[in-house]
Design a protein around this nucleic acid. Sequence first.
DNA 1: GATGAATGAGACTTCATTCAT
DNA 2: TATGAATGAAGTCTCATTCAT
Lengths: 201, 201, 201, 201
Amino acid sequence: MKSKVLENKKRKLDQLLDSAFELFSSQDIQNVSISDIVKQAGIAKGTFYLYFKDKYDLQKALIKRESRRVFEEAYQIYLENDIRDFEDGVIFLINQVLIILENNSIILRFIHKSLSWGVFDSELKDVLRDDSFNLVELFKQDIEKSGYHFDNPEITLFIILDMVGSACYSSIMDDYPLPFNEFKPYLLNAVRSILHEGAPK
Amino acid sequence: MKSKVLENKKRKLDQLLDSAFELFSSQDIQNVSISDIVKQAGIAKGTFYLYFKDKYDLQKALIKRESRRVFEEAYQIYLENDIRDFEDGVIFLINQVLIILENNSIILRFIHKSLSWGVFDSELKDVLRDDSFNLVELFKQDIEKSGYHFDNPEITLFIILDMVGSACYSSIMDDYPLPFNEFKPYLLNAVRSILHEGAPK
Amino acid sequence: MKSKVLENKKRKLDQLLDSAFELFSSQDIQNVSISDIVKQAGIAKGTFYLYFKDKYDLQKALIKRESRRVFEEAYQIYLENDIRDFEDGVIFLINQVLIILENNSIILRFIHKSLSWGVFDSELKDVLRDDSFNLVELFKQDIEKSGYHFDNPEITLFIILDMVGSACYSSIMDDYPLPFNEFKPYLLNAVRSILHEGAPK
Amino acid sequence: MKSKVLENKKRKLDQLLDSAFELFSSQDIQNVSISDIVKQAGIAKGTFYLYFKDKYDLQKALIKRESRRVFEEAYQIYLENDIRDFEDGVIFLINQVLIILENNSIILRFIHKSLSWGVFDSELKDVLRDDSFNLVELFKQDIEKSGYHFDNPEITLFIILDMVGSACYSSIMDDYPLPFNEFKPYLLNAVRSILHEGAPK
DNA sequence: GATGAATGAGACTTCATTCAT
DNA sequence: TATGAATGAAGTCTCATTCAT
């Protein structure tokens, strides 16, 4: 009965998200109009407002969806590779994220563009601490198991993620300051330097 | 004769830059119209186009002016404090920049907002390598003098600046993940970890 | 069986009328959307069209319902006060209407708003000459009984009602040109001047 | 130099007012879009906003212009007809206004439509008390000269104008309750009844 | 050079109405 | 009957840019 209607709604929602993702990735968000989004989605303009308050409401939903996808995919691969050493594990996980981003520069571009709005950080917070996938907690547990010590592990994680996220963009997108495959070792090295600080004496 | 005309031009230019800076700092750049800028500057709308191609042309000029000011001010203080140790020197310099930004969150906000346009990085490049003030070169020289070694000092500097710039913003502006005075030690510590990697054995 | 269905319909109809009345009274009618009305009534949007052709169809029904209520209530009180003198009687009746409107500025506002549509007058015509309550006829009969004479009693009644209705609004709502309790004597006096013209010599 | 620009501006303003007047007179104001107005005026849409804040801002300007025209024209004719008697004078003046309105039902319709917005009364207040043409003051002076007495002449004037304005509309436009030429005697009679109340004993 | 009135494309948003369920 | 998701026309308003003065 109702299921047909619900299916339909879900499909429209996905069409909107998909179209917006594509457009947001290829242009500055403020240059993407709602008209563009609905045209691309093949949906009437009024319908947009049944699903989102405005462009930025949609953007928030997209950020959640896309960043969760990246982290979960990376974490899945990490789990499949029974890595025991703490530093190696973190590096491996970050590397997985970087590989995903490198191969999917659409996501990278989109996430980077989103930074401009200060909206990413606050949404990212939620993603990282989601009930079903709490990266912060996992990080803490691994530290404990490994005998490392950080005065404030959350802060350390924040700094690392910020550094990686910020530095990889221009390398992947513009080959600056180096092409990414040359740049990555330096970046992962920097991560390792920070982690190593917490190594057990 | 001519000088009066030139002075006049320079004054108008500065009025435009100052007004734009004020406006760009307090709101999203795409919400600042050229009308707003010229109104604030007390200049006619048509005149704007005698000095800049469009809003983003002006923004580029602003970024150059403002970031150069910050670096030069910090470097001046650094010079006045005859610091000999390499790590201490870099930390001191970065700290000076952070102090300036903390006390002048207008500049911080403006620089951060500019990131959104991807325009900052490319302009920053120029600033860091300006003939009259080449920070990259200075960094290399200090490394040499100190006996440290980095496979690629430029990359290291890039990573550090990116990390610091990216991480300090949300802390200064939103007290996230910690208020800045609590956060700064962690951040400088991370910098030191990276630098220490290059210490002579 | 059937009665339950009919009850249901009547209830929905009343819900729509009540909600619309409330909304029409508090804002300009053209700013009230059908969405607003059905939301307030707790009824689905499509259902609206089962009862009314559009917003203005509903408005007409409302005008009839509300103005009839006012006149009937005033007339009831008039009947209970066995007033013999003709002029006194008309003044008394008008005063009752004014008292009702003064105490129920919602109705006043609604009726006034409706004037804007030119739709009120034509509906009012019907109300005043309704089979079950024919005010025009009553007025004529009273004139006859009292020995007064007007060349055209209907016209006189029309002018009086128009004057009273038009003048009382700004006084009740905006205290202009005077607060209503101060203004009313002047208004009733003007009515009496007009009536007195028809007094028997 | 400047005069050409100023002329141009004045012309645009008048084009807008004239077009709006025409449209407002033939349809409900809320059904007239700004698009309609500028199209009729042969002016770009953006230009509208250089002259008026919105449609209702323009409407206010129109009301002032049009009602002042009517009163001034009627008053001019009144002056040319050296009428000595007070009652006759007022009746004559009102009659002139009615003649103008009857012959120019566009203005009548427009003024009536404006009533719906409650905007007319407040603007009318200004027009009647304008420095260069203060009808209220003229009315008071005439009363004094003639030896009549009203407790509150302003209120009496208000009631008369309201009554006339309100009653004449449906008669002129819809021949209800009578065609205007038949209705007018009754209306002027009602006015005279009210005025006569203040006659010296 | 400097001005600011004029332009008109286009962005956002609302809403009456339809129609499949 | 009743529902409410979907539609898309139409409205308001902004703003970068031009150009006559």
